[in-house]
């Protein structure tokens, strides 16, 4: 009996190894260990043996069963791995064989610039104000200390709208009317920026469009000074353009601010060393700014002895163009997808 058990135990590894599929393995397992298997058949005879041989045979039987179990499990794992490998190999894909293009759209360059600017200013504690694009003469000029026939009106080529009395309704030439609305609709302290679309009677060329975008800022509070203006613009400059870019202010004239200044930044191309882009000056003119004119404060019912403020503004389109080296502003407005998709973010 023990000899039979030992013989089966000795033959088993070879038979198991010979199984080349999981089905064959299952068959071999059944032949050896199944209800009608060889070991099961022998087991039935064990009960008839004397106690000592019975014990010996039982031990041998358990030993062989365990060995076969282990061998079958090992073989099964190997066969399963091989089958999986075949399946995976059959599923191979060429990952560069991609049909169809990208599916994501893009934000307009103006929007991207707008959002970046607004994010810097909200980080500095500013709210974001908006207003209508068609305005009255009062909001666009009068309230800003630019009375009718003021020579300074020549600074803006205005597009008038055929509503009301002649030249009383217009397409806003700057976002400054929103400053007036912020001051008339609310009260100080005011820390606000006004991004928006503006209009000029300008023929389109590489650097001009009749429609473009600006962002202006307005701060009105007690004790606000020119130093606060200079500091705010310096903070904004390094936050937006990077720490190596600084700002400077030069005297200028705007009817709605006094003292007025031009706001320059270090040339972004040469960082101030002087190059072709900045005509060797090291500076780029970005926009205008100044202390809110006392007449403007009076026009919105604020006493200039109590309240002081500053305002600044600059063009947004140029920043968008400079960032990506686009040399013709008209490109941004054709809606040509070959242009738009170049700037996904």
């Amino acid at each position: 009996m023990i000899d039979d058990i030992t013989r089966i135990g000795a033959e088993a590894p070879g038979r198991i190894a010979a199984a080349s599929t999981l089905d064959e393995l299952r068959a071999v397992e059944a032949e050896l260990l199944g209800k009608k298997g060889e070991l099961t058949a022998l087991k039935k005879g064990i009960g008839a043996l004397e106690p000592e041989p019975r014990r010996q045979a039982g031990l041998a039987m358990n030993e062989v069963r365990a060995a076969i179990d282990a061998a079958v499990a090992e073989r099964r794992a190997a066969l399963e791995a091989a089958e999986r490998a075949v399946t995976l190999a059959a599923e191979r894909l060429d990952l560069t064989e991609v049909v169809g293009g990208r599916e994501r759209g893009s934000l307009h360059l103006v929007t991207q610039t707008w959002d970046r600017l607004v994010d810097v200013f909200t980080g500095m504690g500013f709210t974001v104000a908006e207003g209508p694009e068609v305005e009255t003469d009062w909001y666009n000029f009068e309230a800003l200390n630019i009375p009718a026939a003021h020579p300074a009106r020549g600074m803006w080529d205005t597009l008038y709208v055929d509503l009301g009395d002649p030249e009383t309704v217009l397409l806003r030439t700057h976002t400054s009317p929103v400053q007036i609305r912020v001051m008339t609709d609310g009260e100080p302290p005011i820390y606000a920026v006004m991004p928006g679309r503006v209009f000029r009677r300008d023929t389109a060329d590489a650097s001009h469009m009749p429609v473009f975008h600006q962002i202006e800022g307005l701060v009105v509070d007690k004790g606000i000074s020119f130093a606060d203006l200079a500091g705010t613009l310096e903070s904004f400059t390094s936050a937006y353009f990077g720490g190596s870019i600084h700002s400077r202010l030069r005297p200028s004239y705007f009817p709605f601010t006094e003292p007025s200044a031009e706001y320059d930044i270090n040339c972004l191309n040469c960082e101030g060393r002087g190059c072709r882009v900045c005509a060797n000056t090291g500076w780029l003119e970005l926009g205008g700014c100044g202390m809110v004119h006392p007449n403007v404060l009076r026009n919105v019912g604020l006493d200039p002895e109590d309240w002081t403020g500053f305002a600044f503004g600059f063009g947004l389109d140029r920043l968008a163009l400079m960032r990506h080296g686009v040399d013709d502003i008209r490109e941004m407005y054709t809606g040509d997808v070959r242009f738009l998709e170049q700037f996904p973010a």
Binding site: G123, G125, G231, R250, E258, P259, H293
Partner: peptide, 30 residues
């Protein structure tokens, strides 16, 4: 104010200190 602008101009804009006002508001979008 007109005269103050002249004073500022001849003092030099670049010599006016830079200071950042503290906004009493929280900046946010509507």
């Amino acid at each position: 104010t007109d005269v103050i602008e002249e004073i500022a101009r001849h003092h030099g804009y670049g010599r006016i200190p830079k200071r950042v006002p503290t906004s009493v508001q929280t900046g946010s979008l509507t």
